[in-house]
Amino acid sequence: MAITNINTFLRDYFQLNECPILQEQNGVLTVQLTEKMDKRLMNRPFYWQYVKSIGKHGEPMKLTLITNPVNRHSKGEWVHFGSPWYVQILNHLKEEHRFTKLYQRDFVQEEKTELHPWLILNQKISYIGRQKRDELFSLGLNLINGQMKTNMMTFLDALTLQPSIPDFSYTISPLIKLKSGYLRVQSVLYDYVTQQKHPWAVEARAKMEEDVDLAKHFFHDEADHAQLDKEISEIRNRYEPRICIQTINGGLFYLKRQQPPNQQN
């Protein structure tokens, strides 16, 4: 579910953040920022402080973003995968939208619909040794029967979800507490990680030992133990393999009883 179209992505982003689109043509997008978004993105705290101190309303800026490289020399900011604007917007999204609570809405509703609670967790596993590599999982745990499913984001994307409970629907309270549900998911990930073979970690360890030996040999005669300790701790910092399991975002989802089909990751 990586971003494929930056233009659509940006337009959605500003619209969802209530910034009107003033113009959009050939990959050049002009938006009117709200005060909130100006403060978030434009990095001009002194202006806002000043406006506030003289008791006036500030004027949020207009922003022109260019996503089509052909037009990159026109007036505005060229936004591409690595441009500071884009990075800032992605970081904004990652920081702000960590939690959610949503309900599935069913359009062909004739009778009362029962909604089951699911804990959805988007998890990143980073393997860090000589280099680094990440894996991303979207997991769901049914908090009534403990069923666990993968690839949840794709499944959820096909549903209609809303922030409040729909008419004619009722929710079942979780039998599994959120916290123990969370720990259950984490332990599944932990098992997944420990059951793998880790040639990269073996390699990093070997490299580490090799460099530590060289350093020991080098400082062999010297009385300078402090320097040796420093070098060794640097080598360990650089190579010592570790795995980091991180929760990107997650939420409590109330979904219809019909279960999501299990999908391969």
Binding site: L90, N122, K124, K132, M153, Q162
Partner: peptide, 24 residues
């Protein structure tokens, strides 16, 4: 207030776009 589905999903997409899939 919780995040809407759309923004929640965009945050996930942001992460999916910035992960490092390979060591090399």
């Amino acid at each position: 207030q919780f995040s809407s589905w759309e923004l929640f999903k965009m945050a996930y997409e942001a992460e999916a776009s910035t992960i490092i899939p390979d060591f090399d």
